[in-house]
Write a protein that binds this DNA or RNA. Structure first.
Lengths: 107, 107
DNA sequence: TTCACATACTTCGCCGGACGATATATCGTC
DNA sequence: GACGATATATCGTCCGGCGAAGTATGTGAA
């Protein structure tokens, strides 16, 4: 699972949201680091819905503009939790081997 | 940075290694989870060398078979450490919001 | 001895995902 | 009226992952 995909799911942990809201949440949650490109987002949304990790929660029309809300499915929830564990484990492969004295210094 | 790329760099934290050795180390370090495909590896090796994150350490001929050893550059070392920190932070976005009662259960 | 397997590197081609650009539409602000 | 934020959709490109095939040698088993 790629980082953009992961942050889409993570954003939905807070509850259903629509595309633009997901972009904003992902940016917040990552401290401004992750900025989902629109092409990435809508592509990911279609793919995740096809994989059953998210589902359309409801569709609203707000001031003439359509809004499609997505929510995490059970599969999506467990997938993002599993993914977080995987990343933590992967991070430890490096952080567990680096002594404070190293940093950018020699081996 | 993708996972395969990350594990290539992580494998080189233990010291210089050649292609096949990197595949084996990555598999060890990830507890058998990460299996670098050869096409992925050699593509990544070229790319990382081009980006200056790794460099050819030496080339040997062992029993008629060529072996090209790569080592991490300073840039590569700091990049993989930075990447590990990034993954840890990303993981916390999810793990920090999940209460023990949740798991695969509802919100 | 022959066959399979592990070691070891290279190249090719497909596919999927990331992402910028573009188009469309409304509302509020300057 | 122009611009920026909100909001969605689609298209095309580029890059990376990865399996497959090709080449070559040593080892151990059948």
């Amino acid at each position: 699972m790629s980082e953009p995909t992961y942050f889409v799911l993570a954003a939905l942990l807070d509850g259903p949201s629509h595309g633009y809201g997901i972009i904003k949440r992902a940016e917040e949650q990552s401290g401004g680091r992750v900025r989902l490109a629109v092409g990435t987002l809508y592509g990911a949304l279609d793919r995740l819905a096809g994989d059953g990790l998210i589902a359309v929660d409801r569709e609203e029309t707000v001031q003439g503009r359509p809004r499609r809300y997505y929510r995490l499915t059970e599969d999506g929830r467990s997938a993002v939790i599993r993914e977080a564990a995987r990343m933590e484990q992967a991070a430890r492969v490096v952080t567990g081997r680096i002594t404070p004295a190293m940093g950018t210094a020699q081996a």
